[in-house]
Simulated scan of single mutants.
Amino acid sequence: MKSWAVALMMMAGVGSGSVAHAFQPYIPGGKTSEMRELRAKLAEQEDHLARLEREAELYAEAEVLGIANAVQASQLPERQQRRLAMAIVREARANGVDPLLVVAVIRTESSFNNYAVSHVGAMGLMQVMPDTGTYLADKAGFKLQRSTNLFDSELNVELGTAYLANLISRFGTPERALVAYNAGPTLARKILAQTDIRERFMAGYPAKVMREFRRLKTQNTTRELTQLDSRKVAKGPG
């Protein structure tokens, strides 16, 4: 066919749906698996960046509260210390608990010894009993698998903080919840029901945790005031 005949056919077909469709511009990968894969990778990168941003916010808060310094007592590798500091802030905020109360419990329970085991078998930073850990993991929708997983610092903090928050909700105050955290909920009810026993018990473990909590709060307030004064000095008069 001669070239002028082809040109006429193309011009005549401009208004035709079938011919017009045949000459639509081609976009590489427009509706192919390549485009779907590209979009999936882009979404994955966006999720990764969002996660990094969230972790940066958590660690910044951990530094402000002094938690980043506190976790150094664990002597865990630096990367794990960072993740532990973030976990304390993250799990505390998720459960509506003051992060410094979590630190106070850890210091009282294990002195930040990640591999501590009590004489009754409580394990890890927040001294979680294996049965309690199994129950809390089931409640959270996963399996503990084995009790030694309680030596995972982030998991221990996740379960221990959830347990502490649950006890505060059930017993009404942090002090009374700490009785249950230390003695178990069943025995705690008996202790709290008897005035003389309650007073003796409250003067022990719960008082120790709350003293540490108040000390941490005071330290944090002093640190904030010092930083504020430093900023004022750096800014200068006016």
Rank of each mutant, 00 (worst) to 15 (best):
L125Y: 04
H21V: 01
L49T: 07
Q24I: 09
A7N: 00
T132A: 04
G96A: 03
F213L: 05
R107Y: 15
N220K: 10
A234S: 08
R231T: 03
V117I: 11
P28L: 03
M35N: 00
M1A: 06
K235E: 12
S153I: 07
Y181Q: 09
F213W: 15
A193W: 04
N69A: 12
T132Y: 05
E53P: 00
A12P: 06
T132Q: 04
A183V: 02
R54K: 15
E224L: 14
Q219M: 10
R54M: 10
S16P: 02
R170S: 12
G15S: 09
N95V: 01
K2Y: 11
A140Y: 09
K208Y: 04
R51I: 04
I106M: 08
L187E: 12
H21R: 00
K139T: 09
M1Y: 15
G133F: 09
G66A: 06
R82I: 13
V64K: 15
V209T: 07
R189T: 13
T173C: 05
V209K: 03
L159R: 04
G66K: 05
Q81W: 06
V179T: 14
L84P: 04
M10F: 12
M126G: 04
A137E: 06
K41G: 00
P28G: 06
Q81T: 02
L58C: 02
L76Q: 00
L84T: 05
S74C: 07
A94D: 04
A165R: 06
S3R: 00
L159W: 10
A104G: 03
Q81G: 12
S230H: 09
E44R: 06
R51H: 13
A60H: 09
Y26M: 00
R214D: 15
A40W: 10
P185M: 05
L228K: 07
G133Y: 10
A162D: 11
R39Q: 15
Q145C: 00
S118P: 02
L101F: 11
V233G: 01
L42M: 08
G204E: 14
S74K: 04
R54S: 11
R83E: 13
T222M: 14
P99K: 04
A7W: 11
A87Q: 01
Q227T: 07
M126V: 02
L42Y: 13
A94P: 01
M35Y: 10
G17S: 07
K217Q: 15
N156D: 09
V14S: 05
M9I: 11
M10C: 08
R51M: 07
A165E: 08
H21S: 00
L192W: 10
L150N: 03
T186L: 09
R107V: 03
G160V: 05
R215N: 14
T218N: 10
L155G: 01
R200N: 13
G66N: 09
D98V: 02
E46L: 13
M86L: 03
E199C: 11
V179R: 01
N113K: 00
P99T: 07
V19A: 15
V71M: 03
